[in-house]
Design a protein around this nucleic acid. Sequence first.
DNA 1: CTGTACCGGTACTCGGCCGTATCGGTACAG
DNA 2: CTGTACCGATACGGCCGAGTACCGGTACAG
Lengths: 204, 204
Amino acid sequence: MTSQAADGPETVAASRRSKITPEREREFFDAVLEQIRECGYDSVTMDGVAASTRCSKSTLYRQWKTKPQFVAAALRANRRVRFVGIDTGSLAEDLREVARAAGDWSHKDTKTLQALGQAVTSDEELAKALREALVEPEIAALQDILRRGVERGEVPEGHAALDYVPAMMFGVLRVRPVLTGEYADAGYLVRFVEAVVLPALGLT
Amino acid sequence: MTSQAADGPETVAASRRSKITPEREREFFDAVLEQIRECGYDSVTMDGVAASTRCSKSTLYRQWKTKPQFVAAALRANRRVRFVGIDTGSLAEDLREVARAAGDWSHKDTKTLQALGQAVTSDEELAKALREALVEPEIAALQDILRRGVERGEVPEGHAALDYVPAMMFGVLRVRPVLTGEYADAGYLVRFVEAVVLPALGLT
DNA sequence: CTGTACCGGTACTCGGCCGTATCGGTACAG
DNA sequence: CTGTACCGATACGGCCGAGTACCGGTACAG
């Protein structure tokens, strides 16, 4: 048990039924999401994804029955907790940190939401996957941050502006490209927090 | 040049080449925009529009060369000034009035933006028409209202929150359906103005 | 009354994409 | 070495929508 524990580069994959490794699956998911951000849901074709990943359309259809199910699976695999570890002990600083973090990946998520916002009206599973991947985790994390601020007494419980903070943040994030053509970066969002969110919460 | 200007009810149509009256044209535009809001840009077909207006596809293609040009024409015809006549003399009341007005037609415009937000990436003319019809007039009207408030001295010129008011308002408007599934109504928007916008502007 | 020009309807071509079927290659089991 | 099962490639069927062509009806001009 000392010399035979070979955790080298060639990991043993003998137990897998499908020959698609998780890494390979990840390539499929990344490719389809990237193409969706690029051209929109309707313009993305299974042929295109297969070609760009140098796999066969058969391979995709062996794993996922339809295109929306494939995209939904990609969204679920992409789901992860946002704003994780943001807990500075100060609500104002937490919100600035959220703004900085959001500025980093806002391009991708905003594009994805924009591109899929239309498709979800015709596929409930896709809509659920989209909400669970890109909406609910972020809202929940933001509300956790606000809740901790209230518990520390920085903002009075039931403050009128509390309910609107998530909508404000994500609203500004999503609508910026429509208004100016540019995506919201960290600097813009931090200034927004300072100029609007903090004053509205009474944090000067 | 004095008596021959016949502006009676039966307007002389001798000079019109097409037999499509402006009212009829309006029916086409209303139909296509309604179907776009309903099913999305890609799902709308020229056959569908022709059928729902009981005209022929040939008639549509005689007037407009392609589908995106047809939709762009519909958007341009739908362009009108928003928030017109809102000038109560008080910035706070003006903003509440904007919120009330926006609550009325926000459903339609939000749906239109959502449905076309994807299509505009592949057609520049469509993108321009969309901006000029649904974005720029509203932003300009809102900025006029803010400017008048500044000129009256209600808000100091260069106040940090001023730049973010349009993005906030339209952001909340557009993002509400994504977060909760409901469209923002007048009550929600007025409460948002009171809880966030006015405090951020220092209007208590 | 006659001609013209547009409208509505329909049939058609063309291209694209979803999803399926088939076939050769190949990695691994025994 | 042989069999099995999956992968990649390709071809195919079916469907649908953009845009075109044609044809009969009809309103209006002269």
